[in-house]
Design a protein around this nucleic acid. Structure first.
Length: 446
DNA sequence: TCTGGGGTCCTAGGACCC
DNA sequence: TCTGGGGTCCTAGGACCC
């Protein structure tokens, strides 16, 4: 902290190792897939072009992706489905349940295509990648970016937008502008603006990356309503009121990069699997079934990353979205970190029993693994007495079978067979790119 | 009636120690 | 009357992101 206060020249980046981050002359380009999930659905169903389309979250709960036509109807992001159901029926909006298997695969294709254009990339999320375009100035940054837009569209079918700027925060803003203004053809270079100050004055603070609803309320209460005003604010004053996060945003708006391009993904710190139930769960054995299922799924993720967990938390939520909504949780420290599903299930079920209470109506539950260590570095205990080698082989065999026959082909009995608490997902499109039996079919009409 | 899921980072406050 | 102070570690909860 003190280094930030004393040394204004030094950006408040935190301690990334030099080799993992790009040089300080990074030219950030944020690639963002337009309406990503909807665009994925359109790739395999061209009838969806030009008509309003939305994609729903798990459990068919909220709207999580909207086509431009759906946005124009006034359907807001993250709004509960039931609130807009009438509007959706009236306007004949096409509705899809989320198909994350398909979206994940399409994301990999986009990233692979981007790799043709620059070696320095940070995969930020399923639909966003930061690139370093430093070294491509001679080609003309905007021209080069338009070439990227055209290639990604041609090779994957996914439309993207690119914002270019000296910091990530400005690149985010540039990207928004690129989406808003069709005449920019999907690309905006912030540095090429004749009057960036004026542009910042038109942007509300709530639109800035990192300023959420609470930050927006506080800033506005101090009379800071636009990105321009925040940029002009005293950074020490902001530091005192909004902490290091607020100060970083302010500096980034001034063009001082505080958030480097992180090309190496930092190791994950936790694995979580949770679901809302399709209906309220009231029986202990159903809660235990669900907890066993979530544990088994999260353990699969652990093994994919070759990690073992030292701590396990089980939580459940009773009656959310109401005044009595409560989270109950219980954490156990394992004697030896593990990635073995049956062992983890044993501990998880014990915690589930602790948090269960009669008369509870459970709406959601989940399992969190933390204290993650690489499996080959696990500290064993001489009094452990478990044959960890054979447990490892069993898990490997299980993962191989499930990889070949589809996730869930081999399951643990503790997770139950009926799983009547399972969520709704009634409108899912076929997993065209990852399931043989859901391949797209071409039909000839006689 | 019906409101996602998976993550990270930061801060405040309590416990504890010397 | 008046009850230290500084440091570390841990945890819970808030805020934010996509």
């Amino acid at each position: 902290m003190s280094s930030i206060l004393c040394d204004r020249e030094k950006p408040a980046c935190g301690g990334q190792p030099v080799s993992d981050v790009a040089s300080n002359k990074t030219i950030f380009a944020l690639v963002d897939c337009n309406n990503f999930y909807v665009s994925c659905e359109r790739v395999f169903n061209p009838n969806l072009e030009g008509v309003p389309v939305v994609v729903l979250s798990n459990n068919d709960g909220c709207i999580i992706s909207r086509s431009n036509e759906a946005k124009a109807l006034g359907i807001k992001m993250a709004v509960p489905f039931f609130e807009v159901r009438d509007l959706i029926e009236q306007a004949n909006v096409r509705v899809y349940s989320a198909n994350f298997t398909l979206y994940g695969d399409m994301s990999r294709r986009v990233i692979h295509t981007l790799a043709q254009f620059t070696p320095e990339r940070e995969i930020y999320s399923i639909d966003e990648v930061f690139l370093n375009l430093s070294g491509f100035e001679r080609a003309g940054l905007s021209d080069y970016a338009r070439q990227i837009v055209a290639t990604v569209k041609k090779w994957t079918g996914i439309p993207i937008s690119i914002g270019i700027a000296p910091t990530k925060t400005l690149a985010k803003l540039a990207n928004k502008q690129a989406k808003k203004r069709p005449e920019l053809k999907g690309v905006m270079d912030w540095s090429a603006l004749p009057d960036p100050e004026e542009r910042l004055a038109q942007i509300e603070v709530g639109e800035i990356w990192g300023i959420g609803p609470s930050g927006e309320r506080r800033l506005k209460s101090w009379g800071i309503e636009t990105a321009h005003k925040l940029r002009q604010a005293d950074d020490q004053w902001i530091l005192k009121r909004m902490g290091i996060v607020g100060q970083r945003i302010l500096l980034e708006l001034r063009g001082i990069s505080c958030l480097p391009l992180e090309m190496v993904r930092s190791p994950r710190k936790s694995v979580l699997c949770s679901r809302s139930f399709g209906r309220a769960v009231e029986k202990l054995n159903e809660l235990k079934e669900a907890v066993a299922e979530f544990t088994s799924q999260a353990a699969e993720t652990l093994r994919e990353d070759r990690l073992s967990a030292k701590h396990l938390t089980v939580f459940c939520i009773t009656r959310p979205h109401s005044e009595q909504a409560r989270t109950h949780s219980s954490t156990v420290e394992l004697p030896v970190a593990t990635d073995s599903t049956p062992e983890l299930i044993r501990y998880a079920l014990r915690e589930a029993e602790k948090i269960f209470f009669a008369d509870g109506r459970f709406k959601k539950a989940g399992v969190v693994f933390s204290g993650l260590v690489p499996t080959e570095e696990v500290q064993t205990d001489i009094f452990d007495g478990k044959n960890r080698g054979s447990a490892g082989k069993l898990m490997q065999a299980l993962d191989e079978v499930n990889a070949r026959l589809g996730s869930g082909a081999l399951r643990f009995a503790a997770a139950g067979l009926l799983q009547s608490w399972r969520m709704k997902s009634s409108r899912r499109s076929p997993r065209c790119t990852t399931r043989w039996n859901e391949l797209l079919e071409a039909k000839t009409i006689a």
